[in-house]
Design a protein around this nucleic acid. Structure first.
Lengths: 205, 205
DNA sequence: CGTTTCATGTAATTGGTTACATGATTCT
DNA sequence: AGAATCATGTAACCAATTACATGAAACG
């Protein structure tokens, strides 16, 4: 349950309203931890009930500001230093697992699409890097670290996807040229023990 | 809803029981799309009700095998070529956003921990690569592509984390040596427009 | 005969998405 | 006056996690 920690993290900097938080989720946190408006308001109520936040002040148009409490700060710190980051889900990589269920042409097109998406994201981050004035204050430091992660990640994904498209063509190209459907029954022996990150053919029964 | 597509993808290769699928989710798919036993059995029922699977045969111990139908194959194909992969959540990166809420020592320790985790994963994948006999059949090709993604991704993460630890020390080290708490009120002007992947300081009210 | 593995399911809870509903203030 | 923005909330549904429950077959 990291939504609550994302909110605690934001409120550790300064008090804010649900609306403020929501905008942050839609913009700067969108690619790291997306969250919806309903979720934010709901979680604000829960966090307050649990004593991690307190309602700080009221403004015009029913605006309510929330501030983090000491137990909130404790919980944020605990999460950051003690909890192990969890595994991520990637439906993009899931598709790669099943590439042979498509024709070779479709499969290679998918990989090119991935390369394009990564390249576009990379470009967007580079433009952002230019636009912002970076200095050495804490938020600026965090920002540069996450941005650099994004730049390296998108570059890696684009390179991988281009390599993979080429590799796929090389390995599966012959079958394609001979007109055999990609998903045709393979000669298939068992390939090794089950292990993370690798589709493993199971022994037929 | 990609669990259903993961299951369709597996069943597109060959019929299987809930138990078979479950093992695949626990082993080869664990780092791409984790799923639990309850989820698998529940989704099998739904997929059958929706006509994307059919119960194929029964075995000993109540074992039930399911096979993909033509509409199941259609849906799998549609998902692979038409649906855009969705954004991922990363609570590891979320923590980076909030690094300045820790002391510099804790922050650098977190980054070193990340480097270690990435290095361990990388090592595991390299051992796997050795163990498996790769050839050019479809599953082997998919397997090598996903494995290579994993190798590049873990290498990138380790390098980034080591760089980030050094960078954090450089930028925040002075404040640390002077005994100022990392989370002390920053001089903070507004830094640029809100944008993906970057913590943005909002104008104070 | 006892343990492990195979095998399927249900129930309760939490987390996340989409859609709906409503109204005040500010800006042009 | 009308549009845009600010601002909060609810309801319904879908996805995911954890825990519980049960029993048959195979293995030693």
């Amino acid at each position: 349950m990291s939504l609550r920690h994302a909110m605690l993290g934001l409120l550790a900097d300064r008090p804010a309203s649900g609306y403020d938080l929501m905008r942050t989720f839609e913009t700067s946190l969108a690619n790291v931890w997306p969250a919806t408006q309903s979720q934010v308001y709901g979680e604000l109520a829960k966090l307050t009930k649990d004593g991690l936040l307190e309602a700080a002040s009221e403004g015009p148009r029913g605006r309510k500001e929330y501030a983090i409490t000491d137990s909130g700060l404790d919980e944020l710190r605990r999460w950051m230093v003690e909890d192990e980051p969890r595994r991520v889900r990637s439906d993009a990589l899931l598709r790669v697992f099943f590439l042979d269920r498509l024709t070779p042409v479709e499969a290679v097109a998918y990989l090119h699409g991935e390369a394009e998406r990564a390249a576009r994201q990379h470009q967007g981050l580079k433009e952002l890097e230019q636009k912002v004035e970076w200095d050495d204050d804490p938020l600026s430091v965090n920002g540069r670290l996450t941005l650099e992660y994004g730049l390296r990640f998108t570059a890696m994904r684009e390179e991988w996807a281009r390599w993979a498209a080429e590799e796929y063509r090389r390995a599966r190209g012959r079958a394609a040229r001979e007109g055999a459907p990609d998903g045709a029954p393979s000669t298939g022996g068992t390939i090794g023990p089950a292990a993370p990150g690798t589709p493993v053919r199971q022994r037929a029964r």
